[in-house]
Structures are given as C-alpha cells and as structure tokens.
Simulated scan of single mutants.
Amino acid sequence: MDLSDIRREYCKDGLRRSTLPSEPIELFEIWLQQAVTAKLTDPTAMTVATVDESGQPFQRIVLLKHFDKNGFVFFTNLGSRKAQHIQEHKKVSLHFPWHPLERQVHITGVAEKLSIAENVKYFSSRPKESQIAAWASKQSCRITARSALEGKFLELKQKFAQGEIPVPTFWGGFRIKVETIEFWQGGEHRLHDRFLYTDQHQSEWNIERLAP
C-alpha cells in the first residue's frame, strides 16, 4: 500500500498572536466547546504518554474528566501500567487530536494523585456498571481469557446488587499540573500555526509562536 500520496490541505482556520488570551485554559475551553458543538467523536479523548524505568515511552487514550487552572484530571486503576510509570516518573504528556477541526493541543506537566474526597465524588457519579468494572479489572495484568473477566464482573454485580458500591482502594485520579500547552491549527501549504504557552510560575504565561 502506497501512503505517500495520502494528504490534504488544512484551511479551516488560522491562529494569530493578537487574538490569543493571556491564559491558555481560556483558549482550551473555547476549543473543547467547539469540538463538542461540532459533535466530534469522543471530544474529551486524550492520549496520555508516560515512560517506564528504562525510558521506553508508552501511550494510551483516556477520557478527560475535569480541567481548570489547577490542571487536567483523569482516573485509572492505580495498579495499571500508566499509574506505575507515573509513580516512578511524574512528568506526563497529554495530546488532544481534534482532526476534523484541524487542531491539536499538546500539554506537558507533572502528575499528582487526587484526594480521597475527589476520588469518591467522581466514582459516585459513574454508572453502576462502570463502578463494578473498576472492581473487576486488574488493569494491565495478564488474564487467561475474556470469560474470566466477564465471570468476575457478574460475580461482583451480584455481590453489589444492593446498596452503594465502595470506591476501590486501588482506583483513583491524577491531576496533571500544566507546565506547557501548545495549540496547533492547521494551515495551507503546511504553514501551520503553533503557539506555545509556558508557565512562568508566577500566574503568568509566556507565549511564543513556533515554526510549523
């Protein structure tokens, strides 16, 4: 299969320094809302990149569950591969690929665990089946067959048939404290617009245009 001729022009929009807000979260919120309004599939889906003890990078897609000036939040099994990586190397990269809008957002930062209260609040808001699935899956561990996973799910569904489901001690969230955010807008002739916000650690952001 020849991939060399698969290409298209990017011409939906542009990005100019004079129109950028001083705070990157403001622009991120606008872009996310536009992704939702455009009915993009999984607009909150983001790639989370981590590295293991040998420096080998790993990526996976998770769903963004909250964001504000304090950071970007997602939840996972605390025994999962990504959580184990974060335990060793707290620097994380996030990536939002909004292809139909010809946009990307790339974030770098440091991960920190959420409080128990924050974990409980979100876990309680999940559908009951998702709560049970969190208990049933030892994320990233090898299993013999899907039937073993389904059997455990049914067993726990019966166990938790009545009353509230407690939050597993091995499940919780991470907040990525932002260090940089890059906004990428596709441009004609591959002359894309890229702007990098860098945290100055004084409630101020340095903004630079990057070459495409």
Results as ranks from 00 to 15, higher is better:
Gln59Lys: 09
Gly172Phe: 02
Pro212Trp: 08
Gln104Asp: 14
Val36Ala: 11
Leu154Asn: 09
Glu208Ala: 14
Thr19Tyr: 02
Leu63Met: 14
Gly172Met: 07
Val73Thr: 11
Ser125Thr: 15
Arg194Asn: 02
Phe123Val: 05
Ile25Arg: 06
Gln185Glu: 13
Val167Lys: 07
Leu63Lys: 05
Leu27Val: 01
Phe195Gln: 09
Thr50Pro: 04
Asp193Ala: 13
Glu26Gly: 00
Thr108Asn: 13
Phe75Gly: 02
His89Val: 13
Ile61Asn: 11
Arg146Phe: 05
Ala136Glu: 02
Ala38Ile: 04
Leu94His: 03
Lys113Ile: 15
Gly186Ile: 08
Glu179Ile: 10
Ser93Thr: 05
Lys113Cys: 15
Glu112Pro: 00
Pro168Trp: 14
Lys128Phe: 02
Lys82Asn: 04
Glu150Met: 11
Thr19Arg: 10
Asp199Trp: 01
Ala148Asp: 12
Val48Ser: 01
Tyr122Glu: 12
Val110Arg: 13
Gly109Leu: 06
Gln56Cys: 03
Trp205Asn: 03
Phe74Lys: 08
Glu102Asn: 05
Glu53Asp: 08
Arg190Cys: 05
Arg103Ser: 01
Lys159Asp: 03
Asp42Pro: 00
Ser115Lys: 06
Lys138Gln: 10
Gly79Leu: 07
Glu208Gln: 14
Phe28Leu: 15
Gln162Pro: 09
Phe28His: 07
Met1Arg: 11
Val105Gly: 01
Lys82Gly: 02
Ser18Glu: 15
Asn77Cys: 12
Asn70Gly: 11
Ser125Phe: 06
Cys11Pro: 00
Leu154Pro: 01
Leu78Tyr: 04
Phe153Thr: 07
Lys12Tyr: 08
Lys91Asn: 11
Pro57Val: 06
Gly55Thr: 09
Leu27Glu: 00
Phe160Val: 01
His89Ile: 09
Pro43Glu: 08
Ser130Trp: 02
Ala83Asn: 01
Ser80Lys: 05
Val73Ser: 06
Ser124His: 05
Glu9Met: 12
Asn70Cys: 05
Thr37Phe: 15
Gly172Asp: 01
Phe74Thr: 02
Gln84Val: 07
Ala45Arg: 05
Asp68Gln: 10
Ala133Gln: 07
Ile143Trp: 01
Leu27Met: 10
Thr41Val: 12
Ile30Thr: 15
Leu20Pro: 05
Ile61Ala: 03
Lys65His: 11
Phe28Arg: 05
Ala145His: 15
Gln56Lys: 13
Ala83Ile: 00
Thr50Leu: 07
Lys152His: 08
Phe160Glu: 00
Gln56Phe: 03
Ala38His: 05
Pro166Ala: 13
Ala133Asp: 07
Tyr10Ser: 13
Glu9Phe: 06
Trp98Pro: 00
Lys39Phe: 09
Phe75Met: 03
Arg60Asp: 10
Lys12Val: 07
Ala134Ile: 04
Glu9Pro: 08
Leu78Pro: 06
Gln34Tyr: 04
Thr180Leu: 06
Ile143His: 02
Ser115His: 09
Lys159Phe: 09
Ile132Lys: 00
Tyr122Ile: 12
Phe174Ile: 08
Gly109Cys: 03
Glu188Gly: 09
Phe96Glu: 00
Ser125Glu: 10
Glu208Cys: 06
Ile165Asn: 04
Gln56Asp: 12
Ala38Tyr: 12
Ile132His: 03
Gly79Phe: 04
Ile61Val: 14
Phe72Asp: 10
Ala211Arg: 10
Tyr10Thr: 14
His66Gln: 09
Gly186Met: 09
Lys65Tyr: 10
Gln158Lys: 15
Thr41Leu: 11
Gln139Leu: 03
Ser124Trp: 04
Asp52Lys: 05
Asn119Trp: 01
Tyr197Val: 07
Leu63Ser: 12
